[in-house]
Every structure is written in C-alpha cells, then in structure tokens.
C-alpha cells in the first residue's frame, strides 16, 4: 500500500486541505482534557495529545441520538406517526484517532452491523467516515492494547495511519479508501529511509513497553458458570460505587436506552447511552430486577467484555486496552487486575 511522508511544518497545510475536502473531526483541547470534535481550522486540532478523555465512539453512536419525530397535535392526520429524523452523512474523516479506539469500532460492528440486524445510523456513519489514525509512540502506563489483541501501531481498524517521526509524519494507507484520500491530498513525497527506520524502531519500542498483562485465551477457556460463581467478585465489587464512568468513557460499551421526549404537541424518540452499572438498566416492568445487587452488575461488565463476547463472537475480547476506565474510575477498580483474576494465570 501507499506510503508517503510530509514535514511537520506542512501539517497545518495538510489539515486545511482535508477540511476543504471533507468534514474533519480531530482531537481538540477543551478545558483540562481533549475530545474529538469537528474542526473548522487546522489550528483547532492538537495532535500532541495522549488520548481523549471520552472515546470517539460518540461520533458513530452519539450519547443522544434522535431517531424519530412525531406530532401529538389534535387533528393532525400524521399525529402519532414516527418519522425518521433526517441525518447528515457527509463524507468525513477522523484525524488522529488512536489505533485502539479505531479497533473498538470493529469490536462494536458485531452489534450494530450484522447479516440480520443493521443499525442504519451506525452503518451509514461507518460508511461515511475515513479513519486516519495516529500511532502511539509512547503508550501510557495504563495502556494494555497488546494484551487484548491490538497495539500501538495496529492498523486493523484504520484506513490510514500517521506515524510521528520527529521532523515529520509517515503516512501509510491501509485500505483503498485511505489510499484514495492520500492521493487526493496530493501527498507524493517518498518516505526517506531515515524516517522509515525511525518509524519501525518506534513501533518496536512502543510494543515492548507494553508487555502482556493477562491471557485472554485462558479466560475464553474457563467455564462460564465457574467464572460466574467465582469467589473473587465479592472482593472486586466492594469498592464500586455503581457510577457509569467506566461504561460511558469506554470505546466499546454500546448499550443504550430509548426514551420518548415530548414538548407541547411535538415529540421525539431518542436513544441514549445507558450503563449496566445502573440498577435501572435491568429493572423489569414488573418491578423485578435480575441484577439488583451491585455484585451482579459489576460482574456483568467484566464478564460481558472479557468472557461472553469471546464466547459469542470468537474474535477476542470487547476491550481494546485504552485504559480510560483505569485512569478515571473514582475508586480505582482496575480491569487489568480483574482480568488477571479471571484468567487466573498472571503472566506479567
């Protein structure tokens, strides 16, 4: 596939060109942390970030998705009929997404885009977005991507990837869509040997810095019922306060809730992020709650990510090792330690 190079001094020019071609989302510093947002000028983007506080999943699966609109007006012949809300699927690019976050979309595809069920919003947005990643030269100490089957230079979920080699960027197209974009940008400079060598060295050193913290295969092999009834959940769950921080920050958590919102005679059906940490998530209309206890909810989150997902889809775990839940959990519940308990074979 196509590989080109450009000097760092040219970065803003490249981004400006991107903005002329497509709608561009990039990491933007907002207050104390970064988030992915649409940018209007190159200077809004900040590629000097570690990672965004919230994952970019909201670009495909927004926190609040307006699905349908309806009228409740008396005498309106269209009253109570759901009309799909028109969406803007203009071709877009996410610039600077980390390989782990891009991989997360593939993890979630099995939920939103299957041979049987297709979520139209997810599918259309996936089609409209080109993912231009930024390889991680210096993964954080809380990252564990290589343990869960991806990596700081993994290009699996990406269309193209940028590698920061100090003076410039190596741009590597991964898919045809990525190649097309690189060609459109008119980037033609061949990668200098020096830069190619540096990129390779950085890949090796980044991957080496991570190591393997637990064995996902071992979790796959364990008996579900045995894991479900394991004694360690009691200890794992104690500190949990059942907030939704871990699930809302997680790039792979896809659960949602649907609400009808009404204002006067107009209404809309919206889809909102929901969290398995909340008791309401599983509350039945009858009043019965199959996961009324904190232990059950905490166990569900880890079992879903690390065990059920593996058993059901046979394509690894539903965790990409971004470490957001590790750094932001208010009570320091660490998925790495929990996974070690679940695999019962710490190889660190």
């Amino acid at each position: 596939m196509l590989e080109v190079y450009f000097q760092k001094a040219k970065l803003n020019e490249v981004i400006e060109q991107l903005i002329r071609l497509l709608r561009v989302y990039a990491p933007v510093l907002k207050g104390a942390y970064h988030e992915f947002a649409q940018i209007k000028t190159a200077s809004d983007a900040d590629l000097g970030f570690q990672n965004t506080r919230l994952s970019p999943k909201g670009l495909f699966h927004p926190h609040l998705e307006r699905m349908f609109e309806f009228s409740l007006a008396k005498g309106d012949p269209q009253a109570s009929i759901l009309r799909e809300v028109p969406k803007d699927y203009s071709p877009s690019v996410i610039l600077g997404i980390r390989p782990c976050d891009a991989r997360a979309f593939q993890v979630d595809d099995v939920n939103f885009d299957t041979s049987v069920v297709k979520d139209p919003w997810w599918v259309e947005r996936r089609k409209s977005m080109t993912l231009v990643g930024l390889a991680c030269n210096e993964p954080c100490s809380t990252c564990f991507c290589t343990t869960v089957g991806t990596g700081p230079f993994d290009t699996n979920g990406l269309d193209a990837v940028l590698v920061d080699v100090g003076d410039g960027y190596v741009v590597r197209a991964v898919t045809e869509r990525g190649e097309e974009l690189v060609l459109k940008l008119g980037l033609k400079d061949l990668v200098p040997d020096e830069a190619a060598k540096k990129a390779e060295e950085q890949k090796v050193s980044a991957e080496q810095s991570l190591g393997r913290l637990f064995d996902t295969e071992a979790i796959a092999k364990r008996d579900s019922a045995e894991l479900f009834n394991a004694g360690f959940w009691e200890e794992v769950q104690f500190a949990c306060i059942n907030c939704g921080t871990c699930t809302f920050l997680c790039p792979t958590c896809w659960c949602f809730d649907i609400q009808d919102e009404v204002s006067g005679e107009q209404g809309e059906r919206v889809r909102l992020w929901d969290s398995c940490m909340f008791p309401l998530f599983t509350l039945h209309g009858s009043g019965h709650n199959p996961r009324s206890q904190k232990l059950q909810r905490v166990r569900q989150r880890f079992m879903h990510k690390l065990k059920y997902y593996q058993d059901k889809y046979h394509q690894g775990v539903a965790c990409v090792g971004c470490g957001r839940c590790v750094t932001q959990c208010p009570v320091n519940i660490d998925i790495r330690s929990v996974a070690q308990l679940m695999s019962a074979s710490c190889i660190c």
């Binding site: 207050g31 306060i241 907030c243 699930t247 809302f248 992020w273 909340f278 008791p279």
Partner: peptide, 23 residues
Amino acid sequence: SCIRCYACRNACPMCFCPTCFVD
C-alpha cells in the same frame, strides 16, 4: 460537559435513597 454518569451522586455517602429521583 456533564455526561450523566452519576459519579457525583454515587460517590456521595449521603445518597442512599432506594430509588433516586432520576430513576
């Protein structure tokens, strides 16, 4: 920037209603 994760509510030792008003 609130994401409605309720961490503020749940971290609070004074929040112990069996059903919270938001639920």
